[in-house]
């Protein structure tokens, strides 16, 4: 997985590409750090470039959501398609993290 960061006044957007799997624990640590360090009250994770996600990847999204909400920030997901959409639908992830 790779990600790009875009920040404006009140919103941090992180755009992912590739696969989000067990092997991305290290990379994802910097995702969480970006969210925690940003002054923006809202973080959007744009998943439209993600081709696949495994259970560890879903766990990372849950972790990011937890860290954000502990700081009073809101995390949202966007651009959920393909395999990621199937996993999200099956796991009713929208009941845990808001999805645009």
């Amino acid at each position: 997985m790779e990600f790009k960061t875009h920040e404006d006044a009140d919103r941090l957007t992180l755009s992912f590409s590739g696969m989000l799997t067990f092997d991305d624990h290290e990379t994802f640590r910097s995702v969480v750090t970006s969210i925690v360090d940003s002054p923006a009250p809202t973080t959007v994770l744009d998943l439209s470039g993600l081709t696949m996600i495994d259970s560890a990847g879903i766990g990372m999204l849950l972790l990011a959501n937890d860290r954000a909400s502990k700081q009073g920030k809101q995390l949202r997901l966007r651009g959920v398609t393909g395999h990621v959409a199937k996993v999200v639908e099956l796991s009713r992830l929208e009941q845990l993290i808001p999805i645009d």
Binding site: I58, E89, L90, S91, Q95, L96
Partner: peptide, 13 residues
């Protein structure tokens, strides 16, 4: 239909 909220994430699920 096998969908349902992931176990262990939300006690109110």
């Amino acid at each position: 239909d096998g969908s349902g909220v992931l176990l262990g994430c939300n006690a109110a699920a």
